[in-house]
Design a protein around this nucleic acid. Structure first.
Length: 507
RNA sequence: GCCCCGUUCGUCUAGCCCGGUCUAGGACACCUCUCUUUCAAGGAGGAAACAGGGGUUCGAAUCCCCUACGGGGUACCA
């Protein structure tokens, strides 16, 4: 089994592309096959510098690796279509010789004129086909001598000669039998006037030359598959199996997911950070938004595919074992960021705390928070992880640690302070400082004991203390907060806070 | 317009190929209760769908047809 992922380097790879690559990868690894990266850069006008490197880095971050490709080499190279130009020209001419294609000399203006003429005559979207081609300048209509003259002196394209009156049937591994009639198809350009092939030619030639056995690609290719089938026939090559994946749709409204939807709805559509080279505009990716690669991969795997059981959280290894093309859905799938977050949360919990330390540290330092030891960071992560779906949320959840509140608190919060607790708090501080060992159980016992001796309701005690220390009314366990802050810091914060609320007793 | 593909809870989907076991299952989100100092997390429960219409059949979410709706394609873009 040989599979490939064949993106075009016209910009950053978006998550739809990541999913296509993932499904191909899963299949290749499951079957012990090979996985090839091929860069389809045949449109020179749309080339975006950096896009190829971005694609490789993104997939690598996701854990998707290739056996062959421009970055790793291999026996079937080169892996950039722009470097294979001569190969395609040779095959295109072969098709002409065998009567499957022809030369066309029409200029852009002539093409446009033809379209307008036929539109005026009532055709909705005129194509270059068995009817219109007879009115155009090509090797089918021009005398042989003129054709040879033009071939020598002017630019030309090679068009596929769409046969008449045929039904093209092919089996799609996801959709079953699909058929098209050739009368609906046009004479697609195979070789452009700049000598580069179009997608259709390059794709078929490369898939054959590279020994691709399964073509797994997006549904947008379904309508051009009959052309590809005919090309295989023209060349006399064995066809690969085809599987067309459902598209990823926008969370609301209609159409497929686009970068704009992400910007508008507040979620990333790219795996990694990307800066548009022409506009300079920066887009954050899933990595920057604090997703774990296995979280993104797991969610994407589930968008359009469903395992036979009810398991939803998968590692890459498990996905490789469970994936099955026949269980891929036919209908487009709406993107759901909430579910992606949930899946990521599941993976966040499966990681060991020690594993997360370096990643959280990066965020910690990026926010220019005070220096912190690994041990302390581990304790904070332990505490925050349960209430976070992404990495940055871990840092957010321990604000109390690095961002002392400013007093007085906003009215809505200060109203919740309990005066009797306020007044007696200095005595608790003394008790806390007497504690032999600062661990959660001991601190908890101390605080509860203190509340009992002073007949203070525990709920009020905890809320008041939490508000004074953190400025928030909810968050991690207050006992854990007390331990992490340490008696000295608790004293410091209370010394600042208490006087503000009228407790003047010296501390 | 035309061609192709599709259509089960708000969303991702199971079930459909091989009609009865489907009073349609799971998950996210939502609601309620529970645990808890709080917020999460956890536990328990709830609300929520076979697009519509015709067939075929003793029986249809499952098979057939039509309609509607959605998506894709219709470039010297991929």
């Amino acid at each position: 089994m040989v599979l490939r992922f064949a993106p075009s380097p016209t910009g950053p790879l978006h998550i739809g592309g990541v999913r296509t690559a993932l499904y191909n990868y899963l299949l290749a690894r499951q079957q012990g096959g090979r996985f090839i990266l091929r860069i389809e850069d045949t449109d020179q006008t749309r080339f975006v510098p950096g896009a190829e490197a971005y694609i490789i880095q993104s997939l690598s971050w996701c854990g998707i690796t290739f056996d062959e490709g421009p970055h790793v080499g291999g026996p079937n190279g080169p892996y950039r279509q722009s470097e294979r130009k001569d190969i395609y020209a040779q095959y295109a001419h072969q098709l002409v010789e065998q009567g499957w294609a022809y030369y066309a000399f029409d200029t852009e203006e002539e093409l446009e004129e033809m379209r307008q003429r036929f539109e005026a005559a009532g055709m909705v979207s005129p194509q270059y086909n068995s009817i219109t081609r007879t009115y155009m300048k090509n090797s089918l209509t021009l005398p042989l001598q003129e054709v040879q003259e033009r071939l020598r002196t002017q630019p030309y394209v090679i068009r596929f000669l769409m046969p008449r009156g045929r039904e093209v049937r092919f089996y799609d591994e996801i959709r079953g039998w699909v058929s098209f009639h050739t009368k609906e198809l046009d004479d697609k350009v195979l070789l452009k006037s700049d000598g580069m092939p179009t997608y259709h030619l390059a794709n078929v030639v490369d898939d054959h030359l590279m020994g691709i056995t399964h073509v797994v690609r997006g549904e947008e290719w379904l309508p051009s598959t009959p052309l590809h089938v005919l090309l295989y026939e023209g060349f006399g090559w064995e066809m690969p199996k085809f599987a067309h994946l459902p598209l990823i749709l926008r969370p609301d409204g209609g159409g497929k997911l686009s970068k704009r939807d992400g910007d508008r709805l507040g979620f990333p559509v790219f795996p990694l950070w990307w800066q548009d080279p022409s506009s300079g505009e920066v887009s954050l990716g899933y990595r920057e938004r604090g997703f774990l690669p296995e979280g993104l991969v797991n969610y994407l795997a589930l968008l359009g595919w469903h395992p036979s059981g009810e398991q939803e959280v998968f590692t890459m290894e498990e996905l490789i074992a469970a994936f099955d093309l026949s269980r891929v859905s036919k209908a487009g799938a709406r993107f759901d960021y909430e579910k992606a977050r949930w899946i990521n949360q599941q993976h966040l919990r499966r990681r060991s705390v020690a594993d997360l330390v370096p990643q959280v540290r990066v965020l910690w330092e990026a926010r220019e928070l005070p220096p912190i030891s690994d041990t302390q960071l581990e304790a904070l992560i332990q505490l925050a992880r349960e209430r976070a779906s992404t990495l940055p949320e871990i840092v957010d959840a321990v604000r109390f640690f690095y961002a002392p509140p400013t007093h007085p608190l906003p009215e809505t919060l200060s109203a919740k302070l309990h005066s009797p607790v306020l007044a007696l708090l200095p005595t608790f501080l003394l008790e806390l400082e007497q504690v032999s060992e600062h661990t959660e159980p001991i601190v908890e016992t101390t605080l509860k004991g203190w509340a009992r001796t002073h007949s203070l309701p525990l709920g009020k005690v905890l809320l008041t203390l939490r508000l004074l220390l953190t400025g928030e009314e909810s968050g991690p366990s207050l006992y854990a907060i007390l331990v992490l802050l340490g008696a000295a810091e608790v004293r410091r914060r209370l010394q600042i806070a208490l006087p503000v609320y009228g407790v003047s007793q010296r501390l």
